[in-house]
Simulated scan of single mutants.
Amino acid sequence: MTLFYSGRHRAVRPSTVSRSAGLSIAAVAAAGIAAPAMIATSASAAPATVSTNSTKSTFTGTVSYGDRGSSVKAVQRKVGVRADGVFGPATRSAVKRYQSRHGLVADGIVGSRTGAKMGLSRSSSSSSASRSTSRTNFSGLVRQGSRGNVVKQVQRIVGVSADGVFGSRTASAVKSWQRSHGLTADGVVGPQTGSRMGLSGSSSSSSSTVKASSSTSTNTSSSSVLGTAARYVGTPYRYGGTTPSGFDCSGYTQYVFAKHGKSLPRTAEAQRRAATPVSSPRPGDLVFFGAPAYHMGIYAGNGQMYDAGSSRTNVTKRSIWTSAVTYGRV
């Protein structure tokens, strides 16, 4: 075949190289001489290249903030931090960086996708370190001010010094743990958080926790008080209100307890002074915000209360949003 380029022409033989290469290989083979490595075909070279990302494990557990043990050590080695077996802030930050580099959701939690990408073994998910996978039925309540063995359990899980005293540092660590596990970050270890932490059901009988089913004083049944409190959910908030046409916070509690033969003073601070302070609240006790009290409600158990909050919320049942509260019993 003849091609023309700018007035010149030359014969092009596209099969010359391949034909000569084939002859050369054939000639070398015929002579009994080994072919040089440089002429090996791509088909023979391909098996030598192995992608490390192609060998993923099947990981079904969850390792996250507050966990401890061999699974945490395995994660720490993968992300390049000191393998002390405690999943703390440094480990969580390193896990997030690893996830970002590998195109994963950077939530700091080693779940099935992240664990598989890291090449963690299936057995890691059953390690005692992954407490979040072994849920229990916990019915107690541990919060700031609580003390005892259950508090120590919580502290070990969230990665703070296990001194058995639930202080502000423990509350902050609990909030971080709750956020990392998709829970309401209120710093209170109630049934949901405690069960997720793997706390034993018997722990709820400790002196540092509160039974959600415990009764109030002998004169007033918690179930009847809470039943009355629930009856007025949705009642409009009205400043100075003391009737079902409109309540403020202390007017609401005064009205509810009056239905059960309990006479309370008119204002929140006066009710705080009249109540007997308790460190382990029971459903049906009063909960006070501030001293002197600027707001109050009726404790409903599990970190919740009934209260007449404001014109935006009216009378409602909701979570207690701060640990800076006190409790009183009447």
Rank of each mutant, 00 (worst) to 15 (best):
R77W: 15
K78P: 03
G80Y: 07
R82E: 15
D84P: 01
D84N: 11
G85D: 12
V86P: 02
V86S: 07
F87T: 10
T91I: 13
T91A: 07
R92D: 10
R92N: 09
S100E: 14
S100H: 08
S100R: 12
S100Y: 05
G103A: 10
V105R: 05
A106G: 05
A106Q: 04
D107F: 01
G108P: 14
G108D: 04
I109Y: 00
I109S: 00
I109K: 01
G111D: 05
G111F: 03
S112L: 11
T114P: 00
G115D: 09
A116S: 10
K117R: 12
K117S: 12
S121G: 13
S121V: 14
S121Y: 08
S123F: 09
S123M: 14
S124C: 09
S124R: 08
S124Y: 11
S125A: 15
S126W: 14
S126R: 15
S128E: 15
S132Y: 14
S132L: 14
T133P: 08
T133E: 15
R135N: 08
R135P: 03
T136V: 05
T136G: 01
T136L: 03
F138T: 01
F138S: 04
G140C: 10
Q144P: 10
G145H: 05
G145F: 01
G145L: 02
G145I: 07
G145T: 06
G148R: 05
N149I: 10
V150I: 11
K152I: 07
Q153C: 10
Q153M: 13
Q153P: 03
V154L: 04
V154S: 01
R156G: 06
I157E: 07
V158W: 00
G159K: 02
V160M: 03
V160N: 00
V165Q: 02
V165H: 00
F166E: 01
R169K: 13
R169P: 04
T170C: 04
T170L: 08
A173Y: 02
A173N: 03
K175L: 15
S176Q: 06
Q178D: 08
Q178H: 08
Q178A: 06
Q178V: 11
R179S: 13
R179P: 05
S180F: 04
S180G: 11
G182M: 15
A185G: 12
D186P: 02
G190H: 07
P191S: 13
P191K: 13
Q192M: 11
T193G: 06
T193R: 07
G194P: 02
R196L: 14
